[in-house]
Structure formats: C-alpha cells, structure tokens
Simulated assay, not measured.
Amino acid sequence: MVPGAYTARVLDTGVDAGRPYLAMELLDGRPLDVHLREQGPIRAAEALRALALALAVALSGVHRLGLVHRDLKPANIMLTTAGPRPLDFGIAAIVDGTRLTATGGGPGTLTYMALEQFGEERVGPAADVWAWACCVVCAAHGASPFTATNTGGVIRRIVETGPEPAALAAVQALDPALAAVVARALAIDPAQRPADGTALLAALAAARSTGQDPAAVHDQITRGWQTLAL
C-alpha cells in the first residue's frame, strides 16, 4: 500500500508450498546504524537535511494511507544511492487502532519510542514524527537523544529529564532551522508536534522559507544526498 517515494517497494506476496513470502525491491547501500558505526555521524548539513526531508516524505505517504510505522529507527533506514528508504513495517498499525501485529507484540524500539507508546492509548502518526526526530539526531550525533546506560535511564529521559543536550547540539551546529523542527517533534504532548508526515514537511519548508512542491523537494533531497559519502 505504501507509495514508492523513499520507501522500499513490495513487488509481490503470496504463499508457496504453505510458506508465506514477501518479495521487495533489491536496494544497494546499508542501514543507517551500520553507516554510523563504520563512518561516524553525518557531518554535512546538506546530507542531514536530505535525510530528514526524505524520511518526512516517506512518512507523509505512510500517514496518508492511515498507517503508522511505529518502529522507525536507524536499523530500519537503508541509505541507498538514490536516497534513504525506511524498511520493516512489521509492527505497523492502522490509525483507527486496528493492530497489524499479534496481541502482545512489541510496540517499537525503546530509545525511539514516544511517551504515548508506553501506555494503552491509541498511537497515531505523531509517534512516527517523534521517531523521525530521534533518527535525525542520531544521524548527526551517533546515538538516539534518549540513549542511557539502562532501560530505567532511557525511560527517565523520555518521561522526565528530556533528550541529551549534546545530541540536540549536534543538529543545531549543522542546521539550526532543522534543529528547531526536531525540537518541536520531540514535544512530550503529541498535540504539540507536527501532526503527521505532511505537517512535518510543511514545518521543514517553513523553517527554511522554501516551497513544498514535490519536484523541488525531490531535487533538494537529490542534491543534498550527493554530499554524503556512502
């Protein structure tokens, strides 16, 4: 269902000899977490903004379909020559609350989870916006802004103390306008964040006084992505 712009396309599904299968397009490149481990944080402002924009475009397509990814994280973002591609919609949920996972399935990865994912309330697109911000910070800093030495420390950061200042400073040093949108996306109250991927794109455009024309956004992503050594 998810459109192909900056997402990995599903080419076929079915059952063969009683075994379900899923065929996706073959992507070059490597996941963001591997890139960070081998080459360190992204230090080019244009590349970081291209990553942020492409992920926002992908989320916009996901959210327009009434889906929530719920597990956006560096391990699920492929850095390809054509741009970043979010993967793994295995724990996605329909926005109306219908789960696409078995009862009791994990709701996400702790250091990229918004506060509302800890409870029983409905998780909407704003949770993906939070995860988007965590991924952008991780790309510039090397780790999630909520990383801690243990699970309790992570939860304390998310619920009480807030993101690591040095992590946010890494984005601020590269792109202050992007850092301002990231700060909004990490608001504890989901209502204070950009509501979904489309609102996120609008916030990114407003922060830099640029247009939202899809062709112009695609061109900006392409030019910025060329500054990243893969």
Rank of each mutant, 00 (worst) to 15 (best):
A8S: 10
R9M: 09
V10S: 08
V15W: 01
A17K: 15
R19W: 05
A23I: 04
G29F: 00
P31K: 03
D33S: 15
V34K: 14
G40E: 08
G40I: 15
I42E: 01
A47G: 15
L48M: 14
A50S: 07
L51G: 10
L55F: 03
L59S: 00
G61F: 13
G61Q: 14
V62W: 02
H63K: 03
R64N: 08
L67M: 12
L67A: 08
D71E: 06
A75H: 03
L79C: 10
P84Q: 10
R85Y: 02
D96S: 15
R99Q: 15
G108R: 05
G108S: 10
G108E: 02
E120T: 15
V123T: 10
G124W: 04
A127G: 07
V129P: 10
W130P: 11
A131C: 06
C134H: 05
C134T: 04
H141L: 07
G142F: 09
A143N: 13
T147S: 08
R157H: 09
V159K: 03
V159M: 12
E160D: 15
E160Y: 14
A166R: 15
A169V: 12
V171D: 04
Q172L: 05
A173I: 09
V181I: 02
A183D: 05
A183H: 11
A183T: 13
A185K: 01
T198W: 02
A202M: 15
S209T: 09
S209I: 08
D213S: 09
A216E: 14
V217K: 00
T222A: 07
T222S: 05
G224I: 02
